[in-house]
Every structure is written in structure tokens, then in C-alpha cells.
Design a protein around this nucleic acid. Structure first.
Lengths: 227, 227
DNA sequence: CGGAGTGATACG
DNA sequence: CGTATCACTCCG
């Protein structure tokens, strides 16, 4: 039945409800928690959780979770453009990560495609979990499934484990896409591959990304790794 | 002349301009700084600075410095009601601090009056400085000047220093207003005066204030103090 | 522009 | 509701 305190939320698709609960005691007494409920009744407690569920079907970049309204002012955050766009318009190397999405046919390597530009947030840490929550980007994931089936190098790595020093950089950088990125880099550029070197990438990826290198932290191949 | 990038700001009085400057390099490249300019051309870099200058002539409690617009959502912060309002509606003792602002005539004790409710922020530390910047609250300060002139106890304390353990709690709690609060408490209540006891007052004064005690930290009168 | 301080978010 | 982490504000 219609629970009291659950209001319609015009900024979201029909059927979504919003609820605000005031904290009654403790150090945070008087503050409030905001929840959203999908048409099916599932409860959402944060904007990232909501964004994961809605995927690309709804653009939440200007959505204010607390008020439940679209706030054009929120565009502040995502206003970060890649540094190269502003300072080196069309100069430098071909840019491995952002220009890779060329032909989507006939390649033995999975294409990173929307990987970076897809993520609203700026988070850098590789977030395990996240793999739950279901919906999200059904289509491009399916596009890649066919390719994965015949992707040999993935098998190889799976049985030997990735070297410790080789870690992903950037949001949602799974082992598989990381491997793809490195493999692609090896094949599309003759320059040495070092990974991202600046510590600033951690702080502001949108600006500091070295787009001539794959999305992984700086690393060196040790003797142990070669053995 | 009209500098480019300085826009009118409808939320402020006529003649005020706003400017946004994007940071070009460093760790914070891509972020921006917002400035305001008074009709006379003075530059303002923060909301507190702006509030100090405008004083009570403009209510900035819902003013969003970054966007330059009034945001009713900003009222979230000030929405804290005193705990008693919610849990003990109209119960308990007379409430020394919040009910004191009675007659503003004929009292040898300065009345705390707008002391707490006047401050938008929740800051607790006594902020020295601030005394510069000029304008600000000309009128109510003048109202009190007359009373100060004939306020004897203030003189007394000034020449003997306040005991170390007796410190103010709450924003803008000057030595004078603290004294007033204690003195008022002594005269308006027969209950023992202990000061604020809960450590939570530091974290969330609006909620945790023990309104039956004056706005000062808990203290005990030591033998040294009596001597 | 940097960075300490402060407040808000996100999830346990 | 607590609290680690993150993001932003304010001012040097």
C-alpha cells in the first residue's frame, strides 16, 4: 500500500518514490537520511547506488540526491575536461584510451570503448563488489561477450595471475579490461608502455590522465615476473 | 570600465558583480574560484567575508556562494531545532538562554538576546580576528552600548581575570557575553549552575545544548579561584 | 594555486 | 546511527 512519507519524485522515471527520515538521537540527531524506492520497491541509499542501477538510461550528473531535483549547478564537478582538450588541441600522440573505440568488428582484442567516459564519478580506487546490482549497460556488455569467447590472452593470464605491481587505474578497471588495455597498447603503439606515472592521477584523473599510456598504474617488470 | 567575465548577480543588491575563474594548472586544474565585487569594486572571496560586510542588511543564510543564487535547500543546515522542541514540547525548566530576551529595558545585565540565533554557521571555536572588515550589525551593537556603560560587574571581572576553567561555549561567545550569561543565570534561577556538561555540545550545539544552563563549558570552582 | 579545516556522502 | 572517506570552502 502507499506508505506515508514516500513522495513521488518528478526528476526520476514514473513510479520512483523518495523518503526523508530525520535522525532522532545520537551525535547526528536532527540530520536526515534520504532514500529512494524503485517502482518495484527496492530501496536506494546513495547516488552511486542509484546510478549503478539506472545505468545509462538516466543521466544523474545533475541530480541532487538530497533534494531529489535536477540542479544545473551540479555540472561543476563533471565540468573537468581532459587537459589535452584545453592545452594541446589536437596535438601529441594518437591517444590509446580515448580514441580506441574505432571499428568494433574483427579484432581479437576487447575494446575498452566507453570505459572511462561512462563513469559520472571521479573515483579512482578500484571498487570490488559493484558486480552485483544487475541492470546497467546491458547492451555494450553483451556486444563484448562474443569477443571474449575467442579472446585467448585472457585465458593465459587467468591461469598465471597478474603480476602484483600491475594494477588498474581508473573506475571499474577490472582485470579483464586492464589486460585488454595493455594488450591493445602493445599492438597499436611502438612507444614504450609505462602506465600512468603522475601521482596526480589519483587526485584528478580527468585532468591528469596521460592518454598516451594505458589505464594502469606505473610498473616495472621484475625478474620474478619474467620467470 | 565593464570588465569581461563580471556578471550581474540578481540575488544581491544592485551593482554587485560575480566572476568565476577556472584554475589552469596544478593539482586543482579545472576547478574554479568564484569572486564577488561590491558596487564600489571591493573583491570578496568567500561567503563569510561577504556576510561580514553586508551584515544584517542582507540575509545570506540561503545564499549559495558558488552559484550566486538563493537555494532554499541550504536551509537544511539551520533546520536543526532545539532537542527540547521535538522531544519535550513545552516541558522542563524555563530555559535560561533562549527565553532571556524579554524586556530590553531597565536591567543592569546585558541581555544575550540574538547571540546564538544570529550566527548562521555552527562554528564553536571562538574566532579572534574578524574584528576588521567594518560594517556589520551597527544597530543592535549600539543598543547594547548604553547598557555596557553602566554595567558594573564587567569592570570587576576585567580587573581580576576570569578563572581558567570557565570558558565560553558556542559561536561568538566573548568574555563579556559569557559573564552576562552567568550573571543572568545566577539571578533568574535558584538551581545550581554547572554549565554545559555533554561533550556532544562541541559537535552539534543546536541539538545538544542544555538550555537550562548558561552557555559555558562545565566547570568547578576551585579553592584557588575563591582566593 | 595549495592545503588545513570543515562538512557531506555513502555505506557498514 | 556511526564513521571513514571524500569534496569543498576559505584564506594564505
Amino acid at each position: 500500500m502507499e506508505k506515508p512519507g514516500r513522495m513521488d519524485c518528478p526528476a526520476l522515471p514514473p513510479g520512483w518514490k523518495k523518503e526523508e527520515v530525520i535522525r532522532k538521537s545520537g551525535l547526528s540527531a536532527g540530520k536526515s537520511d534520504v532514500y529512494y524506492f524503485s517502482p518495484s520497491g527496492k530501496k536506494f541509499r546513495s547516488k552511486p547506488q542509484l546510478a549503478r542501477y539506472l545505468g545509462n538510461s538516466v543521466d544523474l550528473s545533475s541530480f541532487d540526491f538530497r533534494t531529489g531535483k535536477m540542479m544545473p549547478s551540479k555540472l561543476q564537478k563533471n565540468k573537468q575536461r581532459l587537459r589535452n582538450d584545453a592545452l594541446n588541441p589536437n596535438k601529441g600522440k594518437p591517444d590509446l584510451n580515448t580514441t580506441l573505440p574505432i571499428r568494433q568488428t574483427a579484432s581479437i582484442f576487447k575494446q575498452p570503448v566507453t570505459k572511462v567516459t561512462n563513469h559520472p564519478g571521479n573515483k579512482v580506487r578500484s571498487d570490488p563488489q559493484r558486480l552485483s546490482e544487475q541492470p546497467r549497460q546491458l547492451f555494450w556488455e553483451k556486444r563484448l561477450q562474443g569477443l571474449s569467447a575467442s579472446d585467448v590472452s585472457e585465458q593465459i593470464i587467468k591461469s598465471m595471475e597478474l603480476p602484483k605491481g600491475l594494477q588498474g587505474v581508473g573506475p571499474g578497471c577490472s582485470t579483464e579490461s586492464l589486460l585488454s588495455a595493455v594488450a591493445s597498447a602493445l599492438h597499436t603503439s611502438s612507444a614504450p608502455i609505462t602506465g600512468q606515472n603522475s601521482a596526480a592521477v589519483e587526485k584528478n584523473p580527468g585532468i591528469w590522465l596521460n592518454t598516451a599510456q594505458p589505464l594502469c598504474r606505473a610498473f616495472v617488470v621484475t625478474d620474478d615476473d619474467i620467470r
